[in-house]
Write a protein that binds this DNA or RNA. Structure first.
Ligand SMILES: [Mn+2]
Ligand SMILES: [Mn+2]
Ligand SMILES: [Zn+2]
Ligand SMILES: [Zn+2]
Lengths: 147, 147
DNA sequence: CAGTTATTTATAATCATTCTAACATGATAT
DNA sequence: ATATCATGTTAGAATGATTATAAATAACTG
């Protein structure tokens, strides 16, 4: 049900298509995004790159993530209670379920979300972005058990 | 369709019930929240109170909002691209539609959201908070027209 | 009232993110 | 190729919302 993970080549192709240069730093950030299977933060990407690209500046990570976000190749998730922005490689609309205790994020893919977005667009007259996802909050099974 | 705005007395009663003292500062913050019909930030609340309560510290506004949030009397909204947290007095699950150009927030109340949340809870096994709402992003009619 | 605790205040500290300016790199045009 | 120009990278400084601290104040208890 859930869409296939994007390929490195397609990310780089779209960067180039947008007139951005495909630098070694941008390739590395894209690779790190693909390597992380969840919803990484800028700091996590930067840390992950310290081994292979020790000269990489944090600003470059931030700049690259911003560029990818503007091209709608990734999505920024601002999560209440966390001070780092998380990024989502999956730009197909889906629900991100965040545990308010431990921060674990689960993805739920369902066409009920698309139904909701259609309804919201019609009712509000807002033009929604085609890859709008949502965040909901709760307790993950492990944290629920611990209470 | 949308639930009635909460009363000042009910907010204060729940604070007291939770063992919190009902101070003049907390009353003022609650009043300011009720007076603002939208989704105010801490800074907006504090500015609004400058006239009547010029000695009110920003920390008190932050502390009061945190207390109200913990008691689930208000909800924090972290919006991508804005650096201030917004607060929502309406804790009935609904969709907050944010304009990515001008920041205007519209509310959409629909039971499709509750259907979605039920489905998400079942599929993810997370225990969702009873007043979980969501945020979606788009262009408001006015901003759409300007492009 | 006196004793205890919660709250408020002013201020400083935190820290994720953005800005700056110098340098490096890649593309383009002679 | 070499010069020129635009774009990207870097280290470090600046920003600014939020949080922490510690002293002063206000509310509750008996
Ligand atoms: Mn996701
Ligand atoms: Mn709302
Ligand atoms: Zn958890
Ligand atoms: Zn707008």
């Amino acid at each position: 049900m859930e869409p296939a993970k994007p390929q490195l080549n397609s990310l780089l192709a779209k960067l180039e298509e947008a007139g951005k240069r495909v630098t070694s730093q941008r390739i590395a950030v894209c690779e790190a995004l693909l390597a992380h299977n969840g919803h990484p933060t800028a700091a996590e990407i930067w840390q992950h790159l310290q081994g292979q690209h020790p000269a990489m500046s944090q600003a470059t990570v931030y700049n690259t993530l911003s560029a990818l976000e503007e091209l709608q190749l990734i999505r920024a998730l601002d999560i209440v209670g966390e001070n780092h922005t998380h990024y989502d490689l999956c730009v197909h609309p889906h629900v991100n379920v965040v545990c308010t205790r431990c921060g674990t994020i689960a993805d739920v893919h369902t066409d009920t979300l698309e139904a909701l977005l259609g309804l919201v667009s019609a009712r509000s007259s807002y033009q929604l972005a085609p890859q709008d996802g949502v965040i909901v909050y709760g307790l993950c099974p492990a944290c629920s058990a611990k209470l």
